[in-house]
Nucleic acid binder design. Structure first.
Lengths: 253, 253
DNA sequence: AGCAGGATTTGACCCAGACCCATTGGTGGA
DNA sequence: TCCACCAATGGGTCTGGGTCAAATCCTGCT
C-alpha cells in the first residue's frame, strides 16, 4: 500500500541503510536536500556539520525514533518518510502534537529539557539524520550562520504553532481541516496538475483528528462534507484534491 | 487602582525613567533580577550583555512597546510591569497570544521574521530592557552559555505553548482557567499565606478570555462557578485564592 | 458628585462537535 | 484464502460553550 512512497524514498536516499560504515555524512543525495538545516551554508561551513551527523534507520512504520523518557540528546532531520510526535494527555489518552516530513527537524520541542517528553514514531519507512545537540551547539559558536539558521527555525516553529493551533481554536472543524490540507499540499503533494492533485496520507485519520483537536467521528463527517461539496475525494490512505483553489482560499475566508 | 503595583515597581526599578544617560546598563537593582536571560552568566560574560542593552520606558498602560508592522529588531526583557501580545485573527478581531511578566522575554515569537507580526502592549506601568537581536546573536557566538540559555528559553517556550494551548483544547473551560490561575500564582503572586493568596490582574477579563480561547461570557460564568465552589473570590481587578491546593490539584485531575 | 461609555455579569436559547453505539471496510497474520 | 481486529463511517443524542440581549458595575471625565 505504501509501496509507491517507499520506492520514492529509496531513490531519494541511496546512502540507505548501510550508512554506519561511512566516516562522514554524504549529503549529496539526501532526500532532505534543499530543506535541511544546512541549507545556505558554504561548503567549508558544512564540513563541521557533516562530521557530527549520521544517518539512522530505516525505521519501519510504528517504530520509535525516540521515546518520552529517553534522555534528550539529538535533533533529527528527516531525510525521507514521515514522523509523528505524541504525548500522553492529562487524561491518559495519546495526543498527536505534530507531523514531520522530509527536511523537517524533530526534537526542537525538547531543547533545554532533560528528556524528550514525547514519543517520535515513524509513520512510514523513514530515514533520519541525527544531529547530537551538544555538538550542534558547539558548532553554532563557530558558524554564526548555523546559529542564526537554528534560531530562525525555532522562531518559525513558535509562529507556526501560534498561527495554526492558537488561531485554530477559533476555527470550525472544516477550516481546521482545510488548513491542514493546505499544509499537506505544501509539504507532500505527490502529483499536481493545475487545480487538482493528491496526497498519500502516511498517518491514520485518528492521528489527524487528534492533531486537529477533533474526535475521529467529527473529522470523518467533515471529510465527507468536503467530498459532497466536490472539493476533495476522501479515501482511506489518500486524499484527492479536486479543487485546490477552493482549499487555499477557504482557509482565509 | 493599580497604585500598589506601581509603587512596588518603583521600588524594584530605581534606575527608572532617566536611564538614557547611562552609558552602561546597571542590572544590580533590576526588577527582573534572578529571572533574566543573563542569569547564570559570570561577571565578565555579563559585560558584553550590559553593553548592548538599554532600558526603555516607562510605558503607560495601553502603550505599545512595538507594533505588528514594526521591523523585528530586538527582544525585550520585562524589568517590571506586564505586557500582552496580540494579533488580528483571520476574522479581524484581536486575539491575545500571550502575557509576559517580570523577567520574561518578549519578541521570541518574531525571531527569523521581518516584522514582529503582533502588537506588544503594556498592561500597567512597565519598564523593559531592550536587547538588539543582531548584537545578541553576535554575542552568543562568543558566550556559549548565553547561546545555550537563549536556546533553552526558546525550547521552553515551545513546550509551554504545547502544554497549555495544545493540550488546553481538550480541557474544559474550568480546567483552562485553573491552569491559567496556576500560572499567575507562579509568576505574580502578591501575598500568600499557607493555602490562600491573591493576585492583582493587570489585564482585563476580556484579555484573559481571549487568551484562553473562550468568550468573555463563558469566562465570567466559570469564574462565578469557582467562586460558588469556594475556590476563589472574583473581583474586577483582583482574584483571591481561597484554596490554592484545590487549584494546583484540580488542574492535573 | 454626576454622567457617558465601556467592561463585566446574568439570563435565555442554540448549535457544533463530543459522546455512545452499530455497521462497514481494510489489513495483516495464520 | 479466510479470519480477527482495528480503522473509518454513520446515526442519534447530549451538552459545553457560543451567541444575542439586557441589566449592572466601573472608570475616567466634566
Amino acid at each position: 500500500m505504501t509501496s509507491e512512497i517507499d520506492e520514492e524514498n529509496q531513490v531519494l536516499s541511496p546512502q540507505g541503510e548501510s550508512s554506519e560504515d561511512q566516516s562522514e555524512q554524504d549529503c549529496s543525495e539526501c532526500g532532505a536536500k534543499g530543506r535541511c538545516l544546512r541549507e545556505g551554508l558554504g561548503e567549508e561551513q558544512m564540513q563541521g556539520l557533516r562530521k557530527i551527523t549520521r544517518t539512522l534507520g530505516p525505521f519501519k512504520p510504528g517504530e520509535n525514533i525516540f521515546r518520552v523518557e529517553d534522555k534528550f540528546k539529538s535533533l533529527f532531520v528527516i531525510q525521507s518518510g514521515a514522523v509523528k510526535i505524541e504525548t500522553a494527555s492529562f487524561e491518559g489518552t495519546k495526543l498527536v502534537d505534530g507531523f514531520f516530513f522530509r527536511g523537517d527537524l524533530v526534537g526542537l520541542e525538547s531543547i533545554g529539557a532533560h528528556q524528550y517528553g514525547h514519543d517520535a514514531i515513524a509513520l512510514e519507512r523513514t530515514l533520519v539524520c541525527e544531529l547530537p545537540f551538544d555538538h550542534l551547539e558547539s558548532l553554532c559558536s563557530f558558524v554564526p550562520r548555523l546559529q542564526r539558521k537554528l534560531m530562525i527555525i525555532l522562531g518559525q516553529k513558535i509562529r507556526y504553532t501560534n498561527d495554526t493551533i492558537v488561531h485554530g481554536r477559533y476555527m470550525s472543524a472544516e477550516k481546521r481541516l482545510l488548513s491542514f490540507l493546505q499544509m499537506l499540499c505544501e509539504k507532500k503533494i505527490i502529483e499536481k496538475s493545475d487545480n487538482t492533485g493528491s496526497v498519500q496520507l502516511p498517518m491514520s485519520k485518528g492521528d489527524i483528528a487528534s492533531y486537529l483537536g477533533l474526535r475521529p467521528e467529527s473529522l470523518s463527517r467533515t471529510l465527507t462534507k468536503l467530498q459532497n461539496d466536490g472539493i476533495i475525494r476522501n479515501q482511506t490512505k489518500k486524499i484527492e484534491f479536486l479543487d485546490i483553489k477552493a482549499i487555499l482560499q477557504q482557509v482565509c475566508g
